[in-house]
Amino acid sequence: MITCFLKYEIDPAKVADFEIYAKAWIHNVTRMGGTHHGYWLPSEGPSDLAWCAFSFPLLAAYEAYRTEMATDPACIATYAHAERTQCIRRYDRHFTRPVLEGESPAGLGLM
Rank of each mutant, 00 (worst) to 15 (best):
Thr3Asn: 08
Thr3Arg: 12
Phe5Gln: 04
Phe5Val: 15
Leu6Phe: 03
Lys7Phe: 00
Tyr8Val: 05
Tyr8Gln: 07
Ile10Ala: 05
Ile10Arg: 13
Asp11Asn: 14
Asp11His: 11
Asp11Trp: 07
Asp11Gln: 08
Asp11Val: 07
Pro12Val: 08
Ala13Leu: 12
Ala13Asn: 14
Lys14Gly: 03
Val15Glu: 07
Val15Pro: 06
Ala16Asn: 11
Glu19Pro: 01
Glu19Tyr: 01
Glu19Arg: 15
Glu19Ile: 00
Tyr21Val: 00
Ile26Phe: 00
Ile26Gln: 12
His27Trp: 09
His27Ala: 11
Asn28Gln: 06
Val29Tyr: 06
Val29Asn: 05
Val29Cys: 04
Thr30Ala: 12
Thr30Leu: 02
Thr30Phe: 03
Gly33Trp: 07
His37Glu: 13
His37Cys: 01
His37Lys: 14
Tyr39Val: 04
Tyr39Met: 01
Leu41Gln: 04
Pro42Glu: 04
Pro42Val: 01
Pro42Asp: 04
Ser43Ala: 07
Ser43His: 12
Ser43Trp: 11
Gly45Val: 06
Gly45Leu: 08
Pro46Asp: 09
Ser47Met: 13
Ser47Asp: 11
Ser47Gln: 15
Asp48Thr: 06
Asp48Lys: 10
Leu49Met: 11
Leu49Pro: 02
Ala50Glu: 06
Ala50Met: 09
Trp51Asn: 02
Cys52Pro: 04
Cys52Val: 07
Ala53Asp: 02
Phe54Ala: 07
Ser55Glu: 12
Ser55Val: 06
Ser55Ala: 15
Ser55Gln: 11
Phe56Pro: 06
Phe56Arg: 07
Phe56Gly: 03
Pro57Ile: 03
Pro57Gln: 10
Pro57His: 07
Leu58Tyr: 08
Leu59Cys: 00
Ala60Lys: 13
Ala61Asn: 14
Ala61Asp: 15
Tyr62Asn: 09
Glu63Val: 11
Glu63Pro: 01
Ala64Thr: 13
Ala64Glu: 14
Glu68Leu: 10
Glu68Met: 09
Glu68His: 08
Ala70Ser: 12
Asp72Thr: 06
Asp72Ser: 07
Pro73Cys: 01
Ala74Pro: 00
Ala74Ile: 08
Cys75Lys: 03
Cys75Ser: 15
Ile76Gln: 12
Ile76Phe: 01
Ile76Trp: 01
Ala77Glu: 12
Tyr79Asn: 10
Ala80Trp: 05
Ala80Gln: 13
His81Val: 05
His81Ile: 06
Ala82Glu: 03
Arg84His: 09
Thr85Cys: 02
Gln86Asn: 13
Cys87Asn: 08
Ile88Ala: 04
Arg89Lys: 15
Arg89Trp: 09
Arg90Ala: 11
Tyr91Asp: 05
Tyr91Ile: 00
Asp92Cys: 02
Asp92Gly: 01
Asp92His: 12
His94Ser: 15
His94Met: 11
Phe95Ile: 09
Phe95Cys: 00
Phe95Pro: 00
Thr96Leu: 13
Arg97Pro: 01
Arg97Tyr: 13
Pro98His: 08
Val99Ile: 13
Val99Lys: 03
Val99Trp: 10
Val99Ala: 10
Leu100Met: 11
Glu101Arg: 15
Gly102Ala: 15
Glu103Ser: 14
Glu103Gly: 13
Ser104Gly: 10
Ser104Ala: 14
Pro105Thr: 07
Ala106Met: 05
Ala106Asn: 00
Ala106Lys: 10
Gly107Trp: 05
Gly107Leu: 02
Gly109Tyr: 02
Gly109Asp: 05
Leu110Met: 12
Leu110Arg: 05
Leu110Asp: 04
Met111Phe: 11
